[in-house]
Design a protein around this nucleic acid. Structure first.
Length: 489
DNA sequence: ATGTCC
């Protein structure tokens, strides 16, 4: 679908859909306007998609506070666009699984090292990637090499990252550098189906597929020396490891189960929606509360998942380089979620108000002095981790006070411009891997199909996305990374 | 993203 509605330029980085827009069927009742962050060059590809219509639709949520937002990496998603942000009143508002996404707490974790490019020959990069591929099960339907008991899974669902750390998978300090310290305390396992638990049991500690990856990266540019130093990035050539994954089949099942319940709730509470995929329920209803408690379980699952993977990444480096992870200073820089809804306090028209911020393909971007930011980083702001597509660069940004305009949110990645289906028709996996090899990037994909689907040209240019969020001030550039080796699910 | 429909 092509967007034919109004998109009014506010400034170089902001476009508005006014609340007077009536929708493609001329029956839309927008409760507020929507703002899309973009520059002029991105507008054609944004318009050539259903995402603007979905952004306009998202303003109809009961109890919406402020405007609806879409980040420069928006593209079509289930009900809400991927790259969308919507806040609803903490008491009078609704909660919507579509505004969170199927992969609950999909997110990114960055691990630093004190190694430099000269410490790792090309052969070592390949050895490390192959070792990581062996240690971290990857690909569609991949199963973990550890098998949790029922009690252990329940611990994961209620304790998040703390659970593996207490069982020897990680360092005690790790949890200090995770958003929410790697645990949402509202988790309630009785709100999770047996089927979800079944699917989750064998998948804690696996990478998954699609855009999920493990990358060995090098620092290629430092934009903000002071902030970089505080985040543990010292100079160009420093080696980092980035992990991008989520809650696997567990989160998917939680979302599916509760969507079914909330579709009924829409009728029960007499909620008008332009699209049934926006299914939601009042936050204070039985249905809304049960989704939130189950969503917290899935968020905790994802944090435990990334924690186990960090442990195996450290073990891989220890084995291949014959050194200890402590000696290599493999601490966690930070861990962010980009698919989640959380109760947060924000300044709205000069007043503090509690709102449920739905971030779907959007990253929290809290500025300096926020109590949620680790003490070590508090003078700088939250580290914001933005992964690029396979074979292109990734970014470490910092959150800003200006991001309060988006309820403390920014973009989450490059964003697709081409469907997986079209990408499969256009490219061959072998050629994609070869092309990256010729550029000095070693890729170990779980399948050649995924290599073709994830071809770099199927994505927007990450640089443009970053320039827009930097220019708009909702997150600021600190460091740029380039990949040396990739494990691709 | 996802045992791409139990």
């Amino acid at each position: 679908m092509t967007w034919n509605g109004p998109l009014i330029k506010i400034d170089n980085f902001r476009y508005e859909i006014p609340s007077s827009y009536k929708g493609k069927d001329n029956n839309l009742k927008m409760k507020t306007s929507a703002v899309i962050y973009a520059n002029e060059n991105m507008i054609p590809s944004i318009k050539n998609d259903d995402a603007p219509e979905q952004t306009a639709n998202s303003t109809t949520l009961p109890g919406i506070v402020g405007k609806a937002f879409a980040m420069p990496d928006i593209h079509w998603g289930y009900g809400f666009p991927i790259g969308g942000v919507v806040a609803t009143d903490g008491e009078e508002g609704v909660i919507s699984p579509g505004g969170v996404g199927f992969d609950i707490n999909c997110g990114v974790r960055l691990v630093r090292t004190n190694l430099h490019t000269e410490d790792l020959s090309k052969g070592k990069i390949q050895e490390l990637i192959d070792e990581m591929f062996r240690n971290v099960p990857s690909g569609l339907g991949s199963k973990a090499k550890i098998r949790l008991s029922k009690q252990e899974l329940n611990d994961v669902l209620t304790q998040g990252a703390r659970s593996p750390v207490e069982n020897g998978y990680g360092w005690n300090e790790d949890v200090d550098f995770l958003e929410e310290n790697g645990c949402l305390e509202d988790a309630d396992i009785s709100m999770v189906s047996e089927k979800a638990k079944q699917r989750g049991m064998s998948q804690v500690g696996s990478l998954g597929a699609g855009n999920h990856f493990l990358e060995i990266q090098k620092v290629t540019k430092i934009f903000d020396t002071e902030a970089a130093k505080v985040f543990g990035v010292k100079d160009e050539g420093q080696i980092m490891v980035m992990i991008h994954t989520g809650s696997r089949g567990f989160g998917h099942q939680v979302c599916t189960d509760h969507l079914r319940v909330l579709e009924q709730a829409v009728k029960k509470y007499n909620i008008w929606l332009p699209d049934r995929q926006l299914a939601c329920a009042p936050i204070n209803s039985k249905e809304g509360e049960s989704y939130l408690k189950a969503m917290a379980c899935a968020a905790n699952f994802a944090w435990a998942n990334r924690q186990l993977i960090v442990h195996w990444v450290r073990e891989s480096f220890e084995k291949v380089l014959n050194n200890s992870a402590e000696n290599m200073d493999m601490g966690i820089v930070y861990d962010v979620c980009h698919n989640i809804a959380k109760l947060e306090e924000h300044n709205i028209d000069g007043k503090k108000r509690k709102v449920y911020v739905h971030r779907k393909g959007a990253t929290r971007s809290f500025g300096p002095d926020s109590p949620e930011v680790p003490l070590k980083y508090r003078s700088i702001g939250q580290p914001v981790l933005i992964p690029g597509d396979m074979g292109t660069e990734s970014y470490l940004l910092r959150g800003t006070r200006e991001a309060e305009e988006t309820f403390g949110s920014t973009c989450h990645g490059a964003g697709r411009v081409m469907s997986r289906h079209r990408a499969l028709k256009k490219w061959r996996g072998e050629a994609v891997v070869e092309e990256l090899k010729s550029r000095g990037i070693y890729v170990h994909p779980a399948s050649l199909k995924v290599a073709a689907e994830e071809a770099p040209n199927a994505y927007k240019d990450i640089r443009t996305v970053i320039e827009v969020t930097h220019g708009a001030g909702i997150s600021k550039k600190v460091v740029r990374f380039a990949p040396l080796g990739v494990v691709k699910g």
